[in-house]
Design a protein around this nucleic acid. Structure first.
Lengths: 357, 357
DNA sequence: CTGAAAGCGCTTACAG
DNA sequence: CTGAAAGCGCTTACAG
């Protein structure tokens, strides 16, 4: 009952018990050479029908499974893709990760995941592990700034890499039009009549991405002749936030005179957490505060959440990233490519006109 | 700028350009044998300090990274764990997957993920891929029933396996006390005064798990002298559901006379989807219908969702499963182990006393 | 169309 | 403490 048993019977006696059959065993049973078995397994077409049938039968009889480790070893090339993911517990990453795995598998690759989650040492160890495993390429689905060691390791290993969901100069990347998204969010709030619209960043978004989204927001405000509010910085779950240079309680900020009546948060998880935080302090969304997010993760669309947000095509980006990575694996000398995908505003219930007075 | 460059300089000229340095290159630079380099890399303690230093210096100079494929090939054993996951887009699986990866990495293993998502052929292909990759073990984080081929492949390959989140007779498993959870859910609703409490299953939960949860529910009703309602079967997103043998609209069911006033759904995702469905039809939760879930995924705790649910310790189970799998990898002949973890009811806003009249 | 032989980068006894 | 040699299971030219 320990699942180590294995059908015994007609195998050649020189098959070592408890070991998986090899190409050698198959060759012996079929009465051909290892080369021929290899040709059959790989689907080379220079094998006669008769021989092929004999080999296939031997394979079935022995329940032979090719050893991909050996194959990868001799080929000096694996069919594994490494996926560096920020945090699988974050729905945004989880969604992307799922599509990446699906796409990779469709192309005959397996996906080795590695959570990165903040800790730089862990991230570095993860990259080292992937490099040692000689992954054919890496999908970078996480931060890259603030972790210079990562970039060194990745570039040093000369492993093909694609950044997914963000833009990075030194490698292929596919990400959303961040500035345009910021502009759409701000324009929506302006159109509703908001005059004091704040931008909020969290540690959940890469700094350069944050800057791009904020620049779009700023541009829209400027165009409308409105002053940008001090930048809000908040760590979801924290009772305090920073507004420009001051630090104060979340509720405190939104209760004082001339407080922002609308906030554009640079990502959905942060936006939903903000709704949670202000509402538990009695500040209603959207009655007292309009909130816009970015990403359009699945839960943003639940009626009870109903978050207005800048939607980016997650599946498309993930699939595109994998395709680009495979292209680079085939042709490492390809020029760098940076794909930007369109975003669109999804108006839902978390935004409305500002309260009068 | 295509990241294929590599620092050139003092390497021995016989290093083939564009190829990663091997133990052989290191040996040449350090002026020792390959065996000695291997001893240093593996941390064998029979190397003199002086020699070790020379080797280490050569390694640093060449930026040598051990080839894990070669090592795994000769060791006839990999340090990769396969993770068969139902659907990474489902927060329950995503959460478990994250902890599994973390735990595995902590033990020096990498995690190869494979989405299973309904499609049997895909599942079978995924298992085959993992077996070909000779994973050291498999964490099964998905369904197993209805996919007999899967079980055959897994058992045939004699790969150590652990089931996570559910119980399976023929292999190690760690899962929650399903029946107890069902009992807790029903008792909570009974205590609130509900008389017509229905059990709802979805395709998101393994049939055997569903049966166990339902049996606890039934036992509690029986003990309270209440009749069980017809079993509800629903596919989240569908406009219709089945109640016993009838098929009818979701809202239709809950609007008719003597409709259930409370529903215990066998998992949180299903419960949240149900809240969504009934509320969009004007049926309020908990005002018109109390809903209890199972799992306690993160979003269940959001104020706006506030789902009363049976909480199971996700992290603990995932860590335990990995630990058990590694134990079995070390000692395949270990007797089978089935771990059941305690569950507890988390009372929140989705349940209340039934409407009078 | 088929087979013999070399080699991928390591580890592991085994000598010295 | 160090090195020479065999071998892990495949693929790949290269003969025949």
């Amino acid at each position: 009952m320990t699942s180590t048993s294995r059908p015994s019977g007609t195998e050649p006696s020189r098959r070592r018990r408890g070991k998986a059959p090899t190409i050698f065993d198959v060759a012996a049973v079929a009465g051909v050479s290892k080369s021929t078995v290899s040709n059959v397994v790989r689907g080379a077409d220079e094998v006669s029908e008769q021989t092929r049938a004999r080999v296939l039968e031997a394979i079935a009889r022995l329940q032979y499974t090719p050893n991909a480790i050996a194959r990868q070893f001799v080929n000096q090339r694996t069919t594994n893709l490494g996926v560096l993911v920020g945090d699988l517990g974050n729905p945004y990453y989880a969604h992307m990760a799922r599509v990446v795995e699906r796409a990779a598998f469709g192309f005959g690759y397996t996906a080795m995941f590695c959570n990165i989650e903040g800790d730089d040492n862990l991230a570095a160890a993860g990259v080292d592990a992937l490099v040692e495993q000689r992954v054919a390429g890496v999908v970078f689905l996480a931060f890259s700034e603030n972790t210079p060691h990562l970039e060194d390791s990745l570039r040093g290993a000369a492993v093909p890499i694609v950044f997914l969901g963000l833009h990075e100069r030194w490698a292929d990347s596919v990400g959303p039009r961040d500035a345009e998204g910021g502009r759409l969010a701000a324009e929506h709030l302006l159109a509703l009549g908001h005059e004091r619209i704040a931008y909020m960043r969290t540690a959940l978004v890469e700094p350069s991405t944050d800057r791009a989204r904020q620049s779009g927001y700023r541009a829209a405000l400027r165009h409308a002749g409105r002053a940008a509010q001090p930048t809000l910085r908040w760590e979801p779950g924290s009772p305090v936030l920073r507004s420009g240079r001051e630090q104060l309680g979340v509720a405190e900020l939104f209760r004082r005179p001339h407080a922002p009546t609308a906030v554009f948060v640079s990502n959905d998880i942060g936006a939903i957490a903000l709704m949670e935080a202000v509402e538990s302090a009695g500040i209603g969304v959207p009655a007292d505060l309009s909130v816009v997010g970015f990403d359009d993760i699945a839960i943003a669309g639940l009626r009870r959440i109903s978050l207005t947000t800048v939607a980016q095509p997650l599946d498309f980006q993930a699939e595109k990233a994998v395709a680009m990575l495979l292209e680079r694996i085939e042709r490492p000398s390809l020029p760098l490519r940076h794909v930007s995908v369109a975003v669109e505003l999804r108006e839902r219930g978390s935004t409305t006109r500002p309260r009068v007075g």
